[in-house]
């Protein structure tokens, strides 16, 4: 792997929950490197630590030990305020449930991080960037809607817009299609593919092999360690079927 191109890296990353009896060791010393522009998919059985890994490398949770660097900057030693600033300016998030603020219209929800990050004079630029993103993902017509008035697929595309509004270096996604039907899933994954093509680094957790096939590299977690990894190359629509079958076969071998 080309070291110079690594953007996100974890070393000996561990996370233990002490609130249970006995304490639950969810991540056990994970070493991980994500190249700039890579689309990494994290898979694994339930309780294997997929989401915990995502939240630990994104600074939402504090790892118990080990460290994480983003673009060469050590993250685990940052205070909450600095870490938040990193999330605000360098990271984007898409969740399984489209978490939005019910008191804001769709567009304001998307604008929220961009406005928070923008200095006063940058406000206009942030607004036109968001409007362009909404246009690109086909949700301009729901800009003034309340979040309870639009479909799940539209909301998830809005989530992607929000995640991209701050021009992040890494986009994190936790089961982004978990709550969607198959047509909406395709709709949303097309959007991710699109974003990846633009050069955005993506780290996505999923349990759906069809969704995982959109990635470039898949790692498989079991009991808090990386059990296996597989490079599958760029996704193209015409090879999609085959990639999916290959991936499924690999996963079956791993006991998925």
């Amino acid at each position: 792997m080309d070291q110079a191109a690594v953007t996100l890296e974890s070393h000996e990353l561990s996370k233990t929950y002490f609130s249970t009896e006995p304490p639950t060791e969810v991540l056990r010393g994970i070493d991980l490197s994500v190249r700039a522009g890579e689309f990494l998919v994290v898979m694994g059985t339930s309780g294997s630590g997929k989401s915990t890994l995502l939240y630990s490398i994104s600074g939402m949770d504090r790892p118990t030990s080990g460290n994480v660097t983003l673009e060469g900057r050590e993250l685990t030693s940052l205070g909450d305020t600095e870490m938040s600033k990193v999330r605000l300016t360098r990271m984007g998030f898409v969740f399984q449930q489209p978490h939005f603020l019910g008191n804001l219209e769709v567009r304001d929800n998307i604008l929220l991080p961009a406005l928070r990050a923008a200095p006063k004079q940058g406000r206009e630029a942030a607004i036109s960037r968001v409007d362009a993103l909404m246009e690109r993902f086909g949700i301009t017509h729901i800009r003034s809607h309340g979040i309870t008035q639009v479909s799940g697929g539209q909301l998830q595309r809005a989530s992607i817009c929000r995640a991209l509004a701050g021009e992040p270096s890494v986009l994190f996604a936790d089961e982004p299609t978990g709550a969607l039907n198959s047509s909406m899933t395709a709709e949303v994954m097309d959007a991710f593919t699109d974003v990846h093509r633009d050069g955005t680094t993506i780290v996505m957790v999923t349990h759906d092999p069809g969704v995982a096939a959109r990635g470039e590299r898949v790692i498989y977690l079991r009991d808090g360690t990386v059990e296996a990894a597989r490079e599958i190359g760029r996704w193209e629509p015409d090879t999609a079927r085959r990639r999916e079958d290959d991936l499924l076969a690999w996963l079956r071998d791993l006991g998925f």
Partner: peptide, 21 residues
């Protein structure tokens, strides 16, 4: 839902930015 929809149309974030948000 109707109430919330009416409500969000009346509110706007764009006037604020930075920490003022």
């Amino acid at each position: 839902t109707r109430r919330q929809a009416r409500w969000v149309r009346r509110t706007g974030l764009v006037s604020s930015s930075g920490a003022g948000i």
